[in-house]
Design a protein around this nucleic acid. Structure first.
Lengths: 163, 163
DNA sequence: CATGAAATGCGTCGCCA
DNA sequence: TGGCGACGCATTTCATG
């Protein structure tokens, strides 16, 4: 068994859960909730930022309010010659691509794309298809979200580990 | 038409961009950067929270550090009888499903699933497939991320609007 | 109608026990 | 780790163009 694990314990988990739920919660309040002083909470948060358990604090917005009204997932099929990892460089040049990953299955990669409207999306798609080693794309336009907020990985999974 | 739109101007956009980049940035600092007082910034943030332009402040974590080491996208094909929207209720019972949406294309819905490992994922998949009106699923396991952080919708799209 | 300025209460952050 | 203290920030109230 793992020992009282000095690397990441239940207190850390509760702190992360609180910060995922609201990133602007004060250390004092978190400390009061879990029975720790504010300085102890700050130390733990600083350590988690250092070890990249916590990667940042961000704000969630309603994309439509900012003008992003069209969302899609795009499967990308690459030329068998080029490794899909090379898409990493390409993908950086598209502000419309908010996530990209290599996947198992028929396609080599999956892109998460945001656009202002369908016309804009079509334009982005044409640019992607014009990239050197992109052979084919298949798009899935998002119609509606069935899950609004993301309860997310803030909660603890069955078992836990580090790295 | 709408005039210089008091609803959402460039200052608001800059504030949102700053908060997306770091949700714990002080109003004072944001104000100094855009030429506004702290109270003015706070008022604008409060208003944006009220109108749901800003939906929350959250913390980004490295999922692997919390024990979520397996990620996948799952296409769901429903029985033609049941509307895919009914998946909304089902999906809520799965902490492993962090996003779900209806999409165009062959599948009715697309699920974003997180699990601790492949065994756990298989177990989740079996539960999903056992749901009443789920006819078929196709899974895409995520191998590696090509885009780490999400520059996201923090930046301004070509044109802007509200609602 | 939104802003800036001042006042108070609270949080943060470094230091020491 | 907790506690203390200085400083900075958030938040409210008030007056102004």
């Amino acid at each position: 068994m793992t020992h009282p694990s000095p690397l990441f314990d239940d207190l850390d988990r509760k702190i992360v859960a609180a910060l995922v739920e609201n990133a602007r919660t004060s250390f004092t309040e978190i400390g009061a909730a879990i029975g720790l002083s504010a300085s102890a909470v700050k130390r733990r948060v600083d350590r988690m930022r250092e070890t990249d358990v916590i990667t940042g604090f961000t704000t969630t917005v309603r994309p439509a309010a900012l003008g992003w009204r069209t969302e899609a997932y795009v499967e990308v099929y690459c030329d068998s010659a080029a490794p899909p990892r090379r898409l990493a460089e390409v993908v950086r040049n598209y502000p419309e691509i908010i996530a990209a990953m290599t996947v198992t299955g028929g396609a080599d990669a999956l892109l998460h794309v945001m656009a202002t409207d369908v016309e804009h999306f079509e334009e982005v798609l044409e640019r992607i298809r014009a990239e050197p080693f992109v052979r084919q794309t298949i798009s899935y336009m998002v119609l509606s979200h069935l899950l609004t907020g993301s309860p997310e990985a803030g909660s603890a999974p069955p078992a836990t580990a580090t790295q």
